[in-house]
C-alpha cells in the first residue's frame, strides 16, 4: 500500500523501569514515613522519609528523561499523525480518569451533605440514631459543630475563593489566547499569553496558601474539624495539587516555546497541557459552587 511505515514502534526504553522503581520507592517510603512519624518509632527517626524524597526525585528524573526523549522524537519528525492521535486520545482518557478521582471526593461531599449529616441529626429512618447516640447534634452545613463536638467556622465564598475563581477562569481564557496565537504562528503573543497564564496559576496557588493559613489559624477549620473540614481540604487540596502540576506543565511549555518548539499544526504537548488546565478550571468551578458557595 505505502512504502514508508505507517507506524512508529519505539525501541526498548530504560525510562519505564526507572519510573516503576521510582514509584515503588516513593510508595514504600511514604508508607514507612507515615506510620513511622506516628507512635513510638518516631524516636528512632524515619528511614522512610529519605526514601520517599529520593523516589520523588527519581520520578522527576524519569519524567524529564522520558518526555525529553519523546520531545526529541517529535522534533525529528518521527511523530506521525497516527501517533499524534494516540497521544491525544491517551491524554483525554487520562483526564477522564482524573475526573473520576475527583468524583470520589465529590461523592463523599454529597453523601455527607445529603445523607450522613442529616441522618445523624435524625432524618430519614434515623430518628433513633439521633435520640440514642447524638441527641445534641443539629444538621447544618457547613458543619459548625460535629456530633463529637468539634467546632469550626465556615470559609466564606465571596472573599478569596471568589477572587481565585476569577483568576482561574481568566487563566483558562489566556491559555486559549495563547493557543490561538500559536495556531496563527504569532510567537510573541503566544509567549506573552502563556506567561500570563503561568503567572495566574502561581497567584492562584499563593492565594490558596493564604486561605489555608487563614483557615487553620483563624477559623479553626482543619482536616480534623469533622467532615466539613475533611471534604474542604481534600477537595481543595487535591485540586491545588493538580493546579501545581498544571502550572509546571505550562511552565515547561513556556520554556519550550522560548526554545522554538511547536508549529501551528504540531503542538500536541501544548494542547495536552491546556486541556489539563481547562480540566482543573472546571473542577474548580464545581468546587466553588459546592464547597464554598452553597
Amino acid at each position: 500500500m505505502n512504502e514508508t511505515p505507517r507506524y512508529y514502534v519505539p525501541d526498548s526504553s530504560i525510562w519505564p523501569i526507572i519510573g516503576s522503581t521510582a514509584l515503588f520507592l516513593t510508595a514504600f517510603g511514604a508508607a514507612s514515613f507515615i506510620h513511622q512519624s506516628t507512635e513510638k518509632v518516631a524516636a528512632e527517626g524515619s528511614y522512610g522519609e529519605p526514601i520517599f524524597y529520593f523516589g520523588l526525585a527519581m520520578i522527576a528524573v524519569m519524567m524529564f528523561g522520558w518526555f525529553g526523549r519523546v520531545i526529541n522524537e517529535s522534533l525529528k519528525g518521527m511523530v506521525s499523525d497516527l501517533l499524534d492521535r494516540s497521544f491525544r486520545m491517551g491524554m483525554a482518557w487520562f483526564i477522564v480518569s482524573e475526573v473520576m478521582f475527583f468524583a470520589a471526593f465529590f461523592g463523599a461531599l454529597f453523601y455527607a451533605r445529603v445523607i450522613s449529616v442529616p441522618w445523624l441529626a435524625g432524618a430519614g429512618n434515623n430518628l433513633q440514631t439521633h435520640l440514642h447516640l447524638w441527641p445534641d447534634f443539629a444538621d447544618t452545613w457547613p458543619l459548625f459543630m460535629t456530633p463529637g463536638g468539634t467546632s469550626t467556622e465556615a470559609m466564606k465564598a465571596w472573599g478569596l475563593p471568589f477572587i481565585n475563581t476569577v483568576i482561574l477562569v481568566s487563566s483558562s481564557v489566556t491559555v486559549t489566547f495563547a493557543h490561538w496565537a500559536l495556531k496563527k504562528n504569532r510567537r510573541t503573543a503566544l509567549k506573552a499569553w502563556l506567561f500570563v497564564t503561568v503567572a495566574l496559576g502561581a497567584i492562584f496557588l499563593t492565594l490558596q496558601v493564604v486561605e489555608y493559613v487563614h483557615a487553620y489559624t483563624e477559623l479553626g477549620l482543619s482536616l480534623g474539624a469533622g467532615i466539613y473540614g475533611s471534604t474542604f481540604f481534600m477537595l481543595t487540596g487535591f485540586h491545588g495539587a493538580h493546579v501545581t502540576m498544571g502550572t509546571i506543565m505550562l511552565l515547561v511549555m513556556l520554556l519550550r516555546c522560548f526554545r522554538g518548539h511547536f508549529t501551528p499544526d504540531n503542538h500536541f504537548a501544548f494542547e495536552a497541557a491546556s486541556w489539563y488546565w481547562h480540566f482543573v478550571d472546571v473542577v474548580w468551578l464545581f468546587l466553588f459552587t459546592f464547597v464554598y458557595w452553597f
Partner: peptide, 11 residues
C-alpha cells in the same frame, strides 16, 4: 479526617 467516622459527621 473523619470521612468514615460518625463523630465527625462522616459514616
Amino acid at each position: 479526617t473523619s470521612f468514615f467516622e460518625a463523630a465527625g459527621g462522616g459514616d
